[in-house]
Design a protein around this nucleic acid. Structure first.
Lengths: 242, 242
DNA sequence: CCGTCGGATTGACGGTGGTCAAACCCGGCC
DNA sequence: GGCCGGGTTTGACCACCGTCAATCCGACGG
């Protein structure tokens, strides 16, 4: 495969050498022997998407694995009418591994939340690569396992916690701090966050208000958490315990 | 209770050849070359559990992969106090793949819903086997992917559907039929089903009552669905459409 | 036969969060 | 400036579901 087509004006383009270097730092590929990368990426392409673009829709056939190189993507699920955000991805994450492997239609659609750059690995060569490289297989297993555990947390939260607790958990996920106070910027508009947390935008607004009792102060898209440890206690304890 | 002492003197025992034959038919291993099985299973053991036994608890360290050979197991998640059923497994399923791979503590506990037989594959040899057998790796990826997609469905259902729609979906999952009518037996007691669907037992009772309008008749643990296609429409359409 | 126990149902009540509507805020644009 | 549009907030209302309690039912053991 000739990898030296220098410039391409189109949104779709084959990988250039500098892009391969970027891809090599993605967790999914970082454990691989460097010389095996070009083979895996031979049929891959990089696509740029503007903010708001739909990458694919729920129900479409999964023909490629996607790796987010830059920007943010939201995975949304819809049931006749209303829509929710199942997961929000940051740069470096691979997504819809499960759909590609099972060869079944997407259960979620994907929307660019910011301008972004996405690597697309067609299904067939990917499966070949997995069969040929135990290391890649383990990488994919690990990546899928991490997302799986996020979903398990999500299911538990949806079944057992209130909206305020889920929002608190979401906020805590935005800061690495485990105690003390924290100030952070919301990474998306509130409508997206609401669907992510599993409530309507109106409810999110009210829930933010009630979280003031837990030491959460909001102004625009800036949030101040007075005591991270206390907020953490709030979302793990039963509602009765303040 | 103690009538089976003759089969197995101890709850734990190494695999016998006839058991290897059973394991070979489990989907996770069925694609493997038969001669590779004994190596993988060298350090595995089979454990019997009585109904109600806790196999492991949420928070425990994941030291082995579990494969359900016979019986039913419920995976439960708890958040300070209340508990929910995240997944119910039937014979042939592997479980907690994700926890074993990431090496992190279980996010869920496991309880035997019936008497059951479980294969336990210790973590280290399993990882070795994966690295050595691309075929096994792909099997595990496929298995994990299938469970992943079940969880995605679950998250979407919890966020976007009412309790009646989730119960309807659960009932539809119990029959292979896509149209016509169906009669089925509930495979668990109603408390377990309630936690599976994500409601209290009291609510489940009432929801069953409301589903009569959708052609669902319940008597004890027997359920009759007058029109499967109609019920299917009910849980995919918006609530307004009767 | 009766008492007990666990599961299931029914009733009454209240809280959480969805719905609909109006108001509000703020940046872009004519 | 005034106008517009999207995102956000607020208010009023109520459906859905959780909670607590009483009751019912079948299985089991006395």
């Amino acid at each position: 495969m000739g990898a030296v087509l220098t410039d391409l004006p189109k949104p779709d383009c084959p990988l250039r050498t500098e892009e391969i270097a970027v891809v090599a730092r993605v967790p999914l590929f970082s454990g691989l022997p460097p010389e095996s990368l070009p083979a895996i990426l031979a049929e891959a392409k990089v696509v740029r998407h503007p903010r708001g673009r739909t990458l694919f829709r729920q129900g479409d056939e999964a023909r490629a694995l996607y790796v987010l190189l830059e920007g943010q993507v939201g995975l949304t699920g819809s049931v006749k009418g209303s829509e929710t955000v199942v997961e929000i991805l940051d740069a470096g994450e691979a997504f819809i591994i499960a759909a590609v492997l099972t060869g079944k239609p997407f259960l979620m659609g994907a929307t660019a939340l910011t301008q972004c750059r996405v690597l697309e690995l067609p299904r067939e060569p990917l499966l070949d690569a997995i069969m040929g490289s135990p290391c890649l297989a383990l990488s994919m297993l690990t990546s899928l396992a991490r997302h799986f555990r996020m979903l398990v947390r999500e299911v538990k939260a949806l079944k057992l916690q209130t909206a305020s607790q889920r929002l608190a958990a979401y906020l805590l996920g935005l800061t690495p701090k485990r105690r003390g106070s924290a100030i952070l910027k919301l990474p998306h508009n509130k409508g997206v966050i609401a669907r992510r947390v599993g409530v309507r935008a109106e409810t999110l607004s009210r829930v933010f208000a009630t979280l003031r009792d837990q030491g959460v102060v909001i102004d625009g898209n800036t949030v101040a958490i007075v005591d991270v440890a206390r907020l953490s206690r709030f979302c793990h304890e039963g509602d009765d315990v303040v």
